[in-house]
Nucleic acid binder design. Structure first.
Length: 752
DNA sequence: CTCAGCTGTTTTTTT
DNA sequence: AACAGCTGAG
């Protein structure tokens, strides 16, 4: 027991020892938050609390797994009985157990984003609405938003304010769509991510016996990353904790980066309001980073108005200053990063695992990957298209899904004519619409299809398909996951389809499918797994995310900043610190929440332990266009005292003459930025897109033509060549030198 | 019903 | 650049 405590500072200790009652731990970045949480749980177990009476909710499965392992190291295998996982996975588990109470079957499917969008698209189509106005993306986020705020479709329909808002924004029928969508999910015995929470809440509200059971069961409740919880999550945990009142939340308002998903910092304030005997602990000492990094982060975050008072400090050495590096292009940015990784690794005896490269959007990884590959630096990408999101995998899983849940309409849609069976879109639509209109389960129709259709090729195809699904169901009943999956893979024709595809992509897809089967084999062979059926496997993976891939060898990590939360690395590179990319233009336009973007940058900075590199490029390919970029406003917000501008000689060597002088200029003026001009020298050019700039048609542009570009100004076309379906022009600009532009995209017009 | 080829659209972040 | 959706010919 003292063994536990000697690793902790005073505040950490008292936070661990405050076992009873509501506790809130405000934990600054790198302040040992996970350690406190881990020890707190271990301590409870050592005090004799049964592990299965402790509920610990984390943000990612990975965080849960790591914490479980660490607890296991302290208290032993008992830790396996903890109720620990993400909100979604824990409540999915409870929902499967209690499904009948809310009219679901326990083998319900979890619809992922693609399923949801496809369903929404079809509803809009059926209602004959304008799909420009009713875009699946918009609808989904509106529905998700509503659900996260406990607004069911019934409540939505009754809420006149919301209805009025929809009418004003040109979507008067949204409430109807929400209703139909919810009903369709229910009929398909499916839940989307948000339903896992909303239905849990509903279950606890409407079934007192269930509520009592879990209230009694969970004697201690702990919530990690509390700043990222939304209203449903708060509502559920509050209900569960109301009997024992032993609820401990850990969070950092400065790291709240999921508002777009309904996360609400307000929860922290509500928490103080809802529990008046609340004990608050503030962890403010940072053990992770050098002083320069901590101070740079502080200097950034102080620009945010909405925050809890808190002083993050460290007794660590000041270390290196934070490097700010300019590149001419995204490609050069990648090269600088790769070179730095290479040198730093060699000079300091670091391993690839010690490096992380972070970016705002997944699309940015390409350029960096290329330069890493060129330098022969092994890397792994976390996020992006995860294994389970690949088309071929999702197709295979759709077969599994449909065979286990025969009312899963979205799975049915996916596989009914893939591989091609001669059952076209028209037929499929007829079946589905018939099912909805007559409120008949999909499977009832399929089983009786011969009495509803004219005999012919199509009918035979459907009958074969139904027969096949039936045989799959028998396999799933009788065999283990691997045997059943192999049967389905083989007899569905999917494996053959991909095997026959001799292209490179086809090969990869085939291998991916084999990989999936290997994964299922491993699942079956795992002695810890008790239930080895295919449907258990499906349930296991439906909430897996890209961050859950096991880390393999020693490799540099590439990921979005969102994925990096909770992690730390010796060296961190943040790429793409440009206005409109970070902070993201989208974010600013849609929600105007600059503070969340700033918190995101704060999270990124505080991942670094010993060295931090901030990169921006002057030009970058985005959306297939070469864009001129200006440095992020966030760079100007950092206190220059903790920064150094491009110490790297190779920038000078490898840059062109023009940029060279830019580099020197900005180096000269960087520290004075604040005193001289508020906009600072980092800014190159105001990017006010002139409203009346009209590109000339491509045909008007000839070699030798004098032209004007919206950003580059005036220049002369040197040559034009065909590039795929596009034409590309090399243009010599007076101010910016030679540029190659894609004519169909470039804002370019004939000069007057 | 299927396929090839063309057109237009879309790119924030994730459980 | 990558895709989804449409059109027209078979």
């Amino acid at each position: 027991m003292s063994l536990i405590l000697e690793n902790l500072n005073e505040v950490q200790q008292s936070a661990v020892l405050q076992e009873k009652g509501p506790v809130m731990i405000i934990a600054g970045a790198g302040s040992g938050k996970t350690r406190v949480l881990t020890y707190r749980i271990a301590h409870l177990i050592q005090q004799g609390v049964e592990p299965f009476r402790i509920l610990a909710l984390t943000f990612t499965n990975k965080a849960a797994r790591e914490m479980r392992e660490r607890i296991e190291q302290i208290v032993g295998t008992e830790a396996r009985n903890l109720w620990m996982g993400t909100f979604h996975s824990v409540f999915a588990k409870i929902l499967r157990f209690e499904a009948e109470k809310i009219g679901y079957q326990s083998n319900f499917t979890i619809y992922d984003t693609d399923d949801v969008k496809s369903l929404l698209k079809n509803i809009v189509k059926e209602l004959g609405l304008n799909d420009k106005l009713y875009k699946p993306n918009v609808l989904y986020s509106k529905i998700s938003n509503a659900k996260n705020n406990l607004i069911t479709w019934q409540l939505y329909g009754e809420n006149l304010d919301l209805r009025l808002e929809d009418e004003n924004s040109g979507r008067p029928r949204f409430a109807e769509i929400y209703k139909i969508y919810s009903q369709r999910c229910f009929q398909a015995n499916a839940m989307d991510f948000d339903d896992l929470l909303l239905n849990t809440n509903k279950l606890l509200d409407n079934h007192l016996d269930v509520l009592n059971k879990y209230q009694y069961k969970f004697e201690y409740i702990l919530i990690d990353e509390f700043q990222d919880t939304n209203l449903v999550q708060y509502s559920i945990t509050k209900k569960l904790a109301s009997l024992h009142q032993n609820i401990c939340v850990v969070g950092d308002d400065a790291q709240s980066i999921y508002a777009f998903r309904g996360a609400n910092i307000q929860n922290i304030l509500n928490f103080e309001r809802d529990y008046d005997d609340l004990k608050i602990f503030k962890l403010e000492q940072n053990y992770r980073s050098t002083d320069n990094i901590v101070q740079a982060a502080n200097s950034l975050i102080k620009h945010n108005k909405a925050q809890l008072p808190k002083k993050v400090w460290t007794s660590n050495d000041s270390g290196y200053k934070v490097s700010v590096l300019k590149s001419n292009t995204d490609a050069e940015e990648g090269r600088l990063i790769a070179e730095s990784v290479f040198e730093e690794r060699l000079a300091n005896g670091l391993k690839n695992n010690d490096f992380a490269i972070l970016y705002r959007t997944n699309a940015q990884s390409r350029a960096i990957e290329e330069s890493l590959r060129r330098k022969g630096i092994p890397y792994r990408i976390i996020g992006g298209l995860s294994f389970y999101q690949r088309k071929e995998i999702k197709d295979m899983l759709a077969y599994f899904r449909f065979a286990t849940n025969i009312n899963d309409v979205e799975a049915f849609r996916r596989i009914i004519n893939y591989p091609k069976r001669g059952i076209g879109a028209t037929t499929v639509e007829k079946i589905i619409v018939y099912s909805y209109e007559n409120e008949m389960p999909l499977w009832d129709i399929l089983e009786n299809i011969s009495s509803m259709m004219r005999p012919g090729k199509i009918l035979t195809a459907i009958l074969d398909f139904v027969q096949f699904i039936k045989s799959c169901r028998i396999q799933i009943e009788e065999k283990d996951a691997y045997d059943a999956a192999s049967f389905i893979a083989k007899h569905s024709g999917l494996l053959r389809e991909l095997y026959d595809d001799k292209t490179v992509e086809g090969r990869v897809r085939y291998e991916n499918l084999q990989e999936l089967l290997n994964g299922i084999k491993a699942f079956v062979d795992n002695p810890e797994v008790e239930e080895k059926s295919l449907s258990t496997f499906l349930q296991e993976i439906s909430l897996l995310t890209s961050s859950d891939q096991e880390k393999v060898e020693d490799a540099v990590t590439l990921m979005t900043i969102h994925m990096s939360k909770g992690l730390e690395f010796q060296n961190v590179y943040i790429a793409g610190l440009e206005e409109n990319l970070f902070p993201s233009q989208m974010m600013l336009e849609s929600r105007a929440d600059l503070e969340e973007e700033r918190r995101l940058f704060y999270v990124a900075i505080t991942r670094a332990k010993r060295r931090l590199f901030l990169h921006y490029a002057l030009q970058r390919y985005r959306f297939g266009k070469l864009l001129i970029c200006e440095p992020s406003r966030f760079l100007n917000e950092l206190d220059p005292v903790y920064l150094e501008l491009g110490d790297r000689k190779n920038i000078v060597q490898k840059s062109t003459a023009t940029s060279n002088s830019n580099y020197v200029n900005s180096l000269k003026n960087f520290g004075k930025a604040k005193s001289s001009k508020p906009t600072s020298t980092l800014q190159i050019r105001k990017s006010k897109p002139s409203t009346n700039f009209k590109s000339s048609p491509v045909e008007c542009l000839k070699e030798g033509q004098r032209v004007e570009h919206i950003k580059f100004g005036f220049g002369e076309i040197l040559n034009i060549e065909k590039f795929g379906n596009d034409k590309r022009a090399k243009v010599n600009f007076e101010e910016f030198g030679d540029k190659t532009l894609i004519l169909s995209f470039a804002k370019l017009k004939v000069a007057e």
